[in-house]
Design a protein around this nucleic acid. Sequence first.
DNA 1: CCCCAGTCCTGCGGGC
DNA 2: TGCCCGCAGGACTGGG
Length: 279
Amino acid sequence: MPELPEVETMVRGIQEAVEGSRILSFTRSKCKCKPISPLPALAQFAKRIKDQKIDSVFRLAKRIVLQLENDDSIVIEPRMTGLMLLTDPPSREHLRFRWELTKGRTKIDLFFWDRRGLGTLKLLSPEEFQQQLGPQKIGPDALLIRRKQWQQCLSKTSRAIKVALLDQKLVAGIGNLYASEILHLAKISPLLPSQQVTRSQIERLTKATRQILKTAIKHEGSTLSDGTYRNALNQQGSYQNMHRVYGKEKQLCPTCNKTEIIRIVQTQRSTFYCPHCQS
DNA sequence: CCCCAGTCCTGCGGGC
DNA sequence: TGCCCGCAGGACTGGG
């Protein structure tokens, strides 16, 4: 599930400890779990990053980037169940990778844990980074996108606005959960064809996106009932307690307090909304 | 080019 | 009780 707020929380959680540290070792966990799919030969990967200093840690859409001093980047995509942790992971079983870092005399363990194993890890040269993660592959960040950019990206597609919000080429960082939350706050129907969005709807969408994502970051993201998502210290987020519509089928809409929230399916994903407030 | 269904993966909950 | 199936949704692929 990690979307922008969860990935941002992971980055903030490891940033201080990891920035300026040096990579002592990188190992794949000896657990039974399968190695991550597009990972180059591990020995080669480990060799390329060994003794490198990590200059900075930042979020790129839903990815975590460790920028190395030689300008290579370690790019981590948690996808559904991946976590970056500074403490012992939730279980031994799905631990995938471990970095041993040093900073002065301090030793730091950094873990990548991933229950479902859909996450990916890449080491990219600056050229590969530009090619694979450049602006033509990834749209403007959802936390920063402005009214004019919303207008531009939505005018490009005839798809329903909820479906467009999930297209990372149009706008980056929103996933299935926050798409429903944002559209509810913005009072926009998830079924609205993107090209038909009005000026005032764009205005509301711009504000709602920032407000939802910022508040979710403040609450360290959403830990759903499966309990998977955790911050870097293996603690749960709390934004799940503030959800407006996601997972709340048949409950009353928190805005009008008289209509039941309904669940529909758009391109094989659940959408939750209030048919009264978001008509 | 645009859009969507199918794919990867694991754990859980519902139905029988 | 135990088994099986479907579902959860990140991003990518292939085909219409």
